[in-house]
């Protein structure tokens, strides 16, 4: 499978996660979000930055619980809530945010 961003094919796996994390750019994020029917707002971007920082620091994509905690620490307690993340990234926020942020699928996300 591949996305096409600005004329360049970007390889993704069967579930839509980037095969090569270095392919990620904001334009790629916009395209992944579009295929997931998510329109990225500033609030989305703030969370995407948090999950990318988490990956940088801890070398894995977070499950829901640490994801909520990391968002709360970075953006404030009012945003460190499942309900807030569910609104931005419906169904499975940790998985969807990781996908749009160009990270691997969270392995401990059950």
């Amino acid at each position: 499978m591949a996305l096409v961003v600005n004329g360049t094919p970007i390889e993704v796996d069967d579930e839509g996660y980037l095969v090569s994390l270095s392919d990620w750019s904001e334009a790629v994020a916009e395209e992944i979000a579009r295929t997931e029917q998510v329109e990225l707002s500033e609030e989305h971007w703030a969370v995407i930055n948090v999950i990318r920082d988490f990956y940088q620091t801890f070398e894995h994509a977070p499950a829901m619980r640490p994801f909520v905690k990391a968002v709360g620490q970075a953006l404030g307690a009012d945003k460190g809530k499942s309900i807030y993340l569910m609104k931005l990234f419906p169904d499975s926020p940790a998985k969807l945010a990781a996908k749009i942020a160009g990270l691997p699928k969270p392995t401990n996300c059950l």
Partner: peptide
Amino acid sequence: QKNLSANLAALPMYD
């Protein structure tokens, strides 16, 4: 391999 240290550092995030 991935740094085990980096992963262990995440333990507090999992309480």
